[in-house]
Design a protein around this nucleic acid. Structure first.
Lengths: 170, 170
DNA sequence: TATTGTTATACTCTATAACTATA
DNA sequence: TATAGTTATAGAGTATAACAATA
């Protein structure tokens, strides 16, 4: 498998701008979320729950891209803060339904618009209306391409020519 | 400050596609980096050091968006793996110059093209050449807007109408 | 047997602040 | 006094695997 000169590869040259745009955005937004006493992971869970009747842990784990084990800890902390509650699922006694409490719902409804309003000028300064439409479309295609499970499995099955290099500690 | 209906705000509707595109990309790339025995933070440091004569800890911390304290731990682990080395800076005996070892340089030179080649089809599947050029330009403008320190300080100085909600544990 | 969620372990990152050795 | 890097601490996310209850 011949490896091209990646510096001249127009597709790969998109990698850095994508990372940089996201990280610049993330850094600003994260600072704001932290000032609310939440972590990004906790905010994610609340945002996913908002507008639903409740989700199971399995559904939440899938949406927030974490494992069940990690999620348990995040939910514990949110429950301690009184922002979510765990309940039964009728029909499956193994499952747990996670819902926002009234306090959690109010928090999101107050916080998200403020957060959105906080972020808006950054986007408005960067792009005009029609450019936003273009950007959205292109970003969605990038997302869909990386979320395509067929491509992932076929590409992912060619590992490690570099495995001659040992990065382990011992 | 009147808060618009954010669901109809075309600027804010860009927020979700940006996050989703990045996360989809990140998830795929991260899985690949992990298979090399590195964490994202460690890979970042190596990528920053590549092609330099060495950077100080302060420079590295700035580039990788972490604090000095966090960086020390990351560097310790990379040093254990023999991928970086710490040396003196002539002229300032407080400072430390961090460099890739030959092993680290070889790792990057082997790993990055493979990593890039691994990622390329995902982008190529999503966009054609001219769309890539457009996307790059728009993403750079988003990045620059969020990195603009003037805007950040003026915007950031309007905090917490939502601070009536207490998210603390005790 | 398979699935749901929790628990346990071990590691990494994070923010913050105190500390040292220089400057 | 200020800066460069380390150390210390406490919290939070991560991957993995074992586990109990249920399906």
């Amino acid at each position: 498998m011949a490896i091209r000169d990646y510096k001249d590869d127009s597709f790969l040259s998109l990698l850095r701008p994508l990372v940089e745009a996201y990280l610049a955005f993330y850094r600003v937004g994260n600072r704001h979320i932290q000032s609310l006493g939440l972590t990004p992971g906790q905010f994610d869970v609340i945002a996913e729950l908002e507008g639903t009747e409740g989700l199971t842990c399995a559904e939440l784990a899938e949406h927030t891209l974490t494992t069940k084990g990690t999620l348990t800890g995040v939910l514990d902390r949110l429950e301690l803060k009184g922002l979510i509650q765990r309940g039964d699922v009728s029909g499956d006694r193994r499952a747990t339904k996670v819902q926002l409490t009234p306090k959690g719902a109010i928090l999101f409804q107050q916080v998200f618009p403020v957060h959105a309003e906080y972020m808006r000028p950054f986007f408005a300064q960067a792009l005009n209306e029609s450019e936003v439409q273009v950007a959205k479309q292109l970003l969605r295609r990038i997302r869909d391409s990386f979320n395509d499970p067929i491509r992932q499995s076929s590409i992912g099955s060619q590992p490690t020519e570099y495995s001659s290099i040992d990065t382990s500690t011992t």
